[in-house]
């Protein structure tokens, strides 16, 4: 028998490789960001920061909310014992599996002002008077296009996360509620939503972090334009560091971004945790 102290050392020794890896990829870069960061006093006067933060929050809020609603609906349908369910599941996951940059280029064509399918489709169903719509050149439409492309790509991921939570809710609870007198809508309100809350919180945090750090989709689709109306914080950091070579301020912006993410995650966890208690 080894004494307790020896056992503790042995346990820690097993954790060393993981700790070293974490140190290399997490602790050191974060430490460097703090070390090199400067220009904190310029933050309150930085209008580009304010507008990129606003754009990022709008993008994050819109994508996460729409994906949550669509993903939940998709997850509920995919869990039903329908014929060919396996094929449908695989098909639904395809957008998520595609490389973002390639998918964004496809959406660029879909939103092309002259030849794009989207304008043509809306024209054919009579929603617009002309098929020529400058989706990516008009400020409001450009943001909507970015949101739509992101929703199309990432809703399957949200559905996948929610499906795991839904599958853990026993069928007996729905049957008990059915006998108690609850129809489908009330079963959804009384059982599905409350029991899915921890999974929803997790999915929202995952997606909010991803959405808040969006880069490649917007970079390919609009490049942050028109007139900076789709410039996200990640694009601003990229410009600052690689275009203007201002590493110190780039580090400061990165810390602002990390702070926003920590704040958002904290709020989601707090809300989910308070209602759980």
């Amino acid at each position: 028998m080894k004494d307790e102290g020896t056992q503790v050392w042995i346990n820690w020794s097993f954790a060393v490789p993981a700790l070293v890896l974490m140190g290399l990829v997490n602790v050191i870069p974060i430490g460097q960001a703090f070390y090199f960061a400067d220009g904190f006093s310029a933050l309150p006067l930085d209008t580009r920061l304010v507008s990129s933060l606003k754009n990022t929050f709008v993008f994050t809020l819109a994508t996460v909310l729409i994906e949550l609603v669509l993903g939940l609906a998709m997850a509920m349908v995919l869990l039903k014992p329908l014929p060919g369910r396996g094929w449908v599941r695989a098909a639904v996951l395809i957008p998520w599996a595609l490389p973002t940059a390639i998918m964004a280029m496809a959406w660029q064509w879909i939103f092309n002002a002259e030849y794009g399918v989207m304008g043509d489709l809306l024209y054919k169903i009579g929603l617009v008077s002309s098929p020529q719509i400058a989706w990516l050149a008009k400020p409001g439409l450009a943001m909507a296009a970015c949101v739509l492309a992101d929703v199309w790509k990432t809703t399957p991921f949200m559905a996948l996360l929610l499906m795991s939570g839904l599958a853990n809710i026993p069928d007996e609870l729905y049957e008990a509620a059915e006998i108690d007198g609850a129809g489908p809508f009330r079963q959804f309100c009384f059982i599905t939503l409350p029991l899915l809350k921890p999974t929803i919180a997790l999915a929202v945090i995952f997606r909010a972090i991803q959405s808040f750090g969006v880069f490649d989709l917007v970079w390919v689709l609009t490049g942050g334009g028109p007139g900076g109306k789709t410039q996200m914080i990640a694009l601003y950091v990229y410009d600052t560091v690689y275009r203007y070579l201002d590493i110190g301020y780039g580090c400061t912006l990165t810390l602002v971004m990390a702070g926003c993410l920590a704040l958002m995650s904290g709020v989601v966890l707090l809300v989910a945790g308070r209602e759980e208690a």
Binding site: P170, E172, L173, E175, A176, A177, E178, I179, D180, G181, A182, G183, F190, I191, P194, L195
Partner: peptide
């Protein structure tokens, strides 16, 4: 439908609402 049969059921795993 079950809700209109005026029955109650006790399930094997009780099916209590955990929340």
């Amino acid at each position: 439908p079950p809700k209109d049969r005026d029955i109650a059921m006790v399930f094997q795993n009780y099916a209590l609402y955990p929340h």
